[in-house]
Amino acid sequence: MSETVVTMLTNAFSVLVFPGLLFVMIVGLLLAGIDRKVLARMQKRKGPPVLQPFYDFFKLMGKETIIPDAANRRVFLAAPIIGFVSLVVMVVLIPIGGYTPFGITFNADLIVMLYLLTIPAVALIIGGSSSGSPYAGIGISREMVTMMAYELPLVIVLLTVALKVGGGSFCFSLGEISAWQETNGALITHWELIPAAIAFLFVIPAEVGTQPFDVAEAETEICEGPLVEYTGAPLAMFKLNTAIKMFVMTALFTVLFFGNAVATEYLALNALIVVAISAGITVLSMTLAHAVCARLKIEHLFKFYWTVVTALAAISLVLVWCL
C-alpha cells in the first residue's frame, strides 16, 4: 500500500515539479529571456533584464480578459490550456539524462512526440479561428502553411535518426536513442548526420514562431495574427506556450543529437547540462537568425523549407540508408 502511495507521489512530483509543470515553466521563460537579452546585445543595445518574460507573464495574468462578441467563448478560452497541457505531457516524456518518469519506456515515443508537437500549433489555430476576426483568419492560414512547410523536413530528420540508431530497422524510442549514444558517441559527431542536425536547427524557429519565420504572427502586418483578440490570462498562457516550446524543441535536439553521451550520474547535473545546451542551441538557431534576417513571406518560407531544408534532411537520410 505504501509503495503505491510512494509511486503516486513520485509520479505527481514528476508531472508537477520536475520535469513537469514548474521546471518547464521556469526554464522556458528563462530561455525566452536569454534569447531577448542576447539579441539585444547583438544589436548593440542593452536589452531587457533576463527575467523580463517572468515579469510579463505575471503582469498579463493580472489583467482582465475581454472576449469579443463575435467569438465562440468556450473554444476561445480552452485553446491556450489545451496547448499548454500537451506541451507539459511532451516534456514529461523527454528523457533528461536517461531519467524517464513513470518508469515507462514506450517503443515509439518519437512518433508520439511528432503528433503531440502538432497539438499546440492546432490549439493556436483553433484559438485564433474562434476569435472571429479577419486578421486572425489570415494569421491561422499562414500558421497552417508554416506547419505544412516544416513537417516534411522534421519527419525526414526523425526517420534518419531512427534509422541510424536502429541499424537495419527503425528505432523510435527516445530512451533507446539516448542510450545508444552513450555507447556509440553522440550522434552530432557522426558526420552523416550533420545535415540532419542543421535541418533540425532550421525547423526549430519555425516551430516556435520566432523571426524570420514568424509570418503567422507578424506584428507589423496583421496585428499579431491569431492572438489579435487575446488579452489577460489566455494571452499569458499563449506566450508561455511559446516559451515552453523553445525548451521542448531544444531539449529534443539535445536528446536526439547528444543523448546520454553528455550525461553524468546525478540527475540535477544532467538537468543543468540539458538547460545549458538548450540555451546554446536557442542562441545558435533562433537568436542568430532573428538578429540577421528579415521576416520571410509565406511563399518564400514554404519554398525554403520544401527545397533547402528538405534537401539537407534527405541527404542525411540517403547517406544513412546507404552506409
Binding site: K63, I67, P68, D69, L77
Partner: peptide
C-alpha cells in the same frame, strides 16, 4: 480577476 471576463 483571473476568472473575470467581459464581453466586448
Amino acid at each position: 480577476t483571473l476568472g473575470a471576463v467581459r464581453k466586448n
